[in-house]
Design a protein around this nucleic acid. Structure first.
Lengths: 238, 238
DNA sequence: AAGAACTGGTGATCCAGATCACGCATCGGT
DNA sequence: ACCGATGCGTGATCTGGATCACCAGTTCTT
């Protein structure tokens, strides 16, 4: 891997970027200090694999900048994307805690930086500092809820349209706030969207046309304009 | 609720029934002692709801005897069963730890007994005894893996046949050991199986006929005889 | 004992979405 | 400027499984 990729290396991106809601935020001075000693920072190019499904867990990654997609594949090559991770997310925690193989593959979707905490060190830390253990438990249960949402989507949603609407809504919530419409930068290909909602590329293509025609959304370059959240919610209705 | 249901109340079913692999097994004397003080035991009839999807988390339940089915429903009434819990399983842990509503409904499928640990007490316990926090983290990550398996099944499995075969295999592994065939007691209705693999009752019915015809399985009363795990695995292939 | 309320089997029909098969942009490298 | 890779849009076809509609056992009620 080549080095810079036009990024500055942040000296410590464990410090809480947003509102201190991350796994390793607001720890006691001691625990924070120890964490700083055991972590290491690296920069990854687009397409880099942080870890691959089935590998023994080496440690956890805390995303500082860039996005990563988490995916699983079946033997026949069908792939589902289970999550698009963003800055602040902790990757590989489940595998590390239960010492089972990584259950997903984590691939950088754009160049970015991440902290790495080796498994052994983390396990030590967590046995030494109860606060860390509690924090990790909470993070795990949050992960679980995300997974559960996924199960609900895959298991209960009837049609691709429904799942697509749900996806659009999940995007717009992040950057909403105003009247009824909101804007999101679209960075995913139709193929990838298909892998998220469990359908085919062609169907996603048709869904885009359909939703545009129905005035539910609109595309300005790479910017997705969501017209009416209410109408989308009516489609979801699950 | 009426009282006995023809069951004897076991005085303490937190002690490890199988090989001490449960959440609260092999704790230190102190932690175990405290746990015993805060837990309470109750007997439930068939059909009893331990908790319902959406309720605020009151605490966790540890199943002692009997089975419980965990399910979620969509607004339109479609239901999926995400897990059949058995003796030793801990229910409601995720909701309690993250203090979010129960994400599933837990219903007793047969009369049984369970220990209840109130949320506050558990949270105290876990902050007081690091070992408990670690244990809980591990349990949570195990839950996560189960959920992930579910996602894989729902998202990657192509056909109902595939999912059905997968389900049969998961049943037979529990009670296998011999050459190629194994026996399981069938306690689920076709309807319930349909809700597990995400299809309709009719399709399950047809799957049974189909698999019987293909000599993959056989039904002797309520006992399911699985003929050839290998053949089933070939159907699954994911 | 006579319903009522579940459960399970099986045909007939229908349609959403997977699959196949193109053509056309756009981008990135050499 | 060229060529290959990659991403997108759209028609034509095919099919697996949902849906509907019965009937027939079974087991709860009362």
């Amino acid at each position: 891997m080549r080095a810079p990729y036009g990024l500055n290396i942040l000296d410590n991106c464990l410090t809480c970027p947003v509102r201190g809601e991350h796994l390793f935020c607001n720890l006691s001075a001691q625990a924070g200090q120890r964490l700083n000693e055991i972590k290491s920072t690296a920069v990854y190019p687009k397409g880099a694999m942080l870890f691959i499904e089935g590998q023994q867990p080496r440690g956890v990654f805390v995303l500082c900048t860039g996005k990563a997609k988490l995916s699983t594949s079946s033997r026949e090559g069908k792939t589902i994307i289970t999550k698009i991770s963003e800055s602040g997310d902790v990757l590989g925690l489940n595998a590390v805690i239960s010492n089972r193989p990584y259950e997903v593959t984590a691939e950088m979707m754009e160049p970015g930086q991440a902290n790495f905490v080796p498994r052994d060190s983390l396990m030590h830390l967590l046995k030494e500092y109860p606060e860390v253990a509690v924090r990790i438990a909470q993070q795990l249960s949050r992960n679980y809820y995300t997974a559960y949402e996924e199960i609900r989507t895959l298991g209960l949603a009837a049609s691709p349209s429904e799942k697509f609407a749900k996806l659009l809504l999940s995007w717009s919530t992040k950057s909403s706030g105003d009247d009824g419409s909101s804007q999101v930068k679209m960075t995913l290909t139709h193929e990838e969207i298909a892998e998220i909602i469990g359908t085919t590329r062609e169907t996603v293509s048709r869904l885009f046309s359909e939703f545009k025609k129905k005035q539910l959304m609109q595309l300005k370059g790479a910017t997705l304009v969501i017209r009416s959240r209410i109408a989308l919610e009516k489609i979801v209705q699950s």
